[in-house]
Computed example of a mutant assay.
Amino acid sequence: MLDSCRNMTLACALSALAGYLDGIGYLHLGGLFVSFMSGNSTRLGVSLAEAHWFAAAQTIGVIVTFVIGAAAGSLIALGRGGRRQTWLLLTEALLLIGSALAYTFGWPTVAVGAIVFAMGLENAVFEVRGGAALGLTYVTGALVKAGQLLGAALTGSASWEWLPNLLLWAALVLGSTTGALAYLHLNLSAVWFAAAAAVVLTAIVAAWDK
Rank of each mutant, 00 (worst) to 15 (best):
G151E: 07
A142C: 08
Q148R: 04
E127H: 07
L78R: 12
V116I: 15
R80T: 14
G131N: 04
M119R: 06
G141H: 09
G141R: 03
R80H: 14
Y138N: 14
L78H: 07
A111Q: 04
L88E: 04
T137K: 10
L121T: 02
R80N: 15
T104C: 03
A114T: 00
V67Q: 08
G135T: 11
V128W: 05
L95R: 09
V144Q: 13
A114I: 00
Y138D: 05
L96K: 00
I68Q: 07
G98P: 10
A118T: 02
I97M: 13
T104L: 12
G131L: 04
A146W: 10
A118F: 02
G73D: 03
I115D: 01
R83D: 14
G69L: 10
G120Q: 08
G98S: 10
G147V: 03
L94Q: 03
L101P: 00
F126E: 03
G120F: 09
A100W: 05
G106Y: 13
L136E: 08
A71N: 01
L95G: 11
L134Q: 13
E122Q: 15
A93S: 15
G130W: 12
G106Q: 13
F126S: 05
L89A: 05
A93F: 09
V67D: 02
A77E: 06
A114R: 04
L134D: 11
K145T: 14
G120I: 10
V144W: 07
M119S: 07
A70H: 03
Y103Q: 03
G131F: 06
L150A: 15
Q85A: 06
F117S: 03
A132F: 06
A77Y: 04
A132S: 12
I115L: 12
A102Y: 05
E122C: 09
L134R: 12
T137H: 11
A102T: 09
G69S: 10
G131S: 10
A142R: 05
A133D: 02
L89R: 00
G81P: 05
V67W: 06
L134V: 12
A142N: 14
A133V: 03
V128Y: 05
T137W: 08
T86R: 02
G113T: 07
I115N: 01
A111W: 06
F117H: 02
G106C: 13
T137N: 10
R129Q: 15
V139E: 04
V67R: 02
L149E: 10
A93C: 09
G81H: 10
A118Y: 03
L90I: 03
A152N: 08
G106I: 08
L136G: 07
L101W: 11
Y138L: 10
L143Y: 05
M119V: 07
A102Q: 07
A71L: 14
F126Q: 04
W87K: 08
V116Q: 02
L89Q: 04
Y138F: 15
G135Q: 12
N123V: 13
L94P: 00
A71M: 13
Y138E: 09
A132P: 06
A118S: 15
L101N: 00
G69W: 07
F126T: 01
L150V: 09
L150K: 10
G151A: 14
G82Y: 05
L90W: 11
G106V: 09
L101S: 05
V139H: 09
A71S: 10
A132H: 12
F126K: 04
A152G: 01
G69M: 11
A70W: 01
A72H: 05
T86I: 00
M119I: 05
W87H: 11
V125S: 01
T86P: 00
G131T: 06
